[in-house]
C-alpha cells in the first residue's frame, strides 16, 4: 500500500512540474497562437543557467537570473521572429519554433557536452518521510512552489488589468486592440510568463531524483505536451489537471512496470502520455477544460 501511495505522490508532484511547463505552452498559445516547440529548450536553458551560475552567486539568485533569462529569451523569440513571420498561421509558426528549438538545443548541447551538470539545489538528494512513504525533498519544494506559482497566475488573470487585458486579447485580439489593449504587450507578457515558469520547471526536472542538467531534459519537457493537450489548449487550470493526470499515469505505469511489461512492454511510461493524448484528442478535441471551437462556418 505504501508503495502505491509513494507512486501516487511521486506522480502528483512530478505532474505539478509538468503542469508548469504545460501552462507555459497554454499561455504562449493563447497570447500569440504559437505552438512553442522551443519550450523544451527554454526549460533546459533555465536549468543550464542555474547550473552554471550557482557556484558564483548561489542557488536562489541563480534561479532568479534563470527566470529572467528564460523570460527574455521568450520575449526575444516573439519580438524578433514570430512577429515577423510572413505567413501567419499556426502551422508555419510551429515549424518556425522547431527551427528555433534546433538552434537553441544544439547550442546548449554543445555547451553542456557529455557532462551532467549539477544544480546545486540546497535540498540536494535528501528525502522527506511521511510515515512509510518517502518523497524527494526537491519534489516537495516543487509542489509548494508550483502551488504558489499557480496562485500568482490566478491572481494575475482574474484580478489585474493586465490579466484581464490578456484574456481579452486571447479571446479576440482585433477587438481587444480596439479597447486600447496593445497586443504586442500582452504577447510579450505571455512569452515572459511562460519563460519564468519554464525556468522553475527546469530546476525541478533536473534536481534529485533526476541526475542533473543534461540535454535530454529538453525532451522530457516534451512530456508536458500531452498534459497541455489533455487539459485544453487555452486553459491554465486545464494545464494543472492535465499535468496531474499525465504525471500520475506515467508514475504508475513506470512504478508497476514489471507487472505491466507482459502487456505493454518495457518503457511504456514514456509512451503512455502520448497514448492518452491521442485518445483525448479523438474523443474531445478541445481537451478537458478548453473552450469549444465555434461551429459556424
Amino acid at each position: 500500500m505504501s508503495y502505491f501511495l509513494e507512486q501516487v505522490l511521486n506522480g502528483l508532484s512530478y505532474g505539478l512540474v509538468l503542469s508548469l511547463i504545460a501552462a507555459g505552452f497554454a499561455i504562449v498559445f493563447t497570447s500569440t497562437g504559437v505552438l512553442n516547440f522551443a519550450h523544451g529548450s527554454i526549460v533546459l536553458f533555465g536549468a543550464y543557467l542555474v547550473a552554471v551560475l550557482h557556484p558564483t552567486i548561489g542557488f536562489w539568485p541563480a534561479l532568479l537570473v534563470a527566470m529572467a533569462g528564460c523570460a527574455l529569451v521568450g520575449v526575444a523569440i516573439n519580438a524578433l521572429l514570430v512577429r515577423h513571420l510572413a505567413d501567419k498561421n499556426a502551422g508555419t509558426a510551429a515549424i518556425l519554433m522547431l527551427g528555433v528549438d534546433i538552434v537553441l538545443l544544439t547550442e546548449l548541447t554543445r555547451r553542456i557536452g557529455n557532462k551532467v551538470l549539477t544544480l546545486g539545489a540546497p535540498w540536494g538528494a535528501s528525502v522527506v518521510r511521511f510515515g512509510d512513504v518517502s518523497l524527494p525533498t526537491g519534489r516537495v519544494v516543487a509542489a509548494g512552489l508550483t502551488v504558489v506559482a499557480f496562485a500568482a497566475l490566478w491572481y494575475l488573470f482574474s484580478r489585474t488589468d493586465l490579466g484581464v487585458g490578456m484574456r481579452a486579447a486571447a479571446a479576440d485580439g482585433p477587438t481587444a486592440s480596439l479597447m486600447g489593449i496593445r497586443l504586442s504587450r500582452t504577447a510579450a507578457t505571455g512569452w515572459a510568463l511562460a519563460g519564468v515558469l519554464a525556468a522553475v520547471a527546469g530546476v525541478f526536472l533536473t534536481s534529485f531524483p533526476a541526475p542533473g542538467v543534461a540535454p535530454t531534459v529538453a525532451l522530457s519537457a516534451f512530456a508536458a505536451i500531452p498534459a497541455w493537450v489533455l487539459g485544453g489548449f487555452d486553459s491554465v487550470p486545464g494545464a494543472v489537471v492535465g499535468g496531474l493526470i499525465i504525471g500520475l499515469t506515467s508514475a504508475l505505469v513506470t512504478g508497476y512496470e514489471s507487472d505491466l511489461a507482459g502487456v505493454v512492454g518495457t518503457g511504456f511510461g514514456e509512451v503512455a502520455p502520448y497514448v492518452v493524448m491521442i485518445v483525448v484528442l479523438l474523443v474531445r478535441p478541445s481537451g478537458l477544460l478548453g473552450s469549444k471551437e465555434a461551429v459556424r462556418v
Partner: peptide, 23 residues
Amino acid sequence: LRGIYLGLATLGLVFIVRHLLVN
C-alpha cells in the same frame, strides 16, 4: 483534427511506433 492539433496527434505516433519497435 486539423492543423497543429493533427500535428500533435502525429507527434504521439512517433513515440508509440518507437515503443513498439523497441518492444
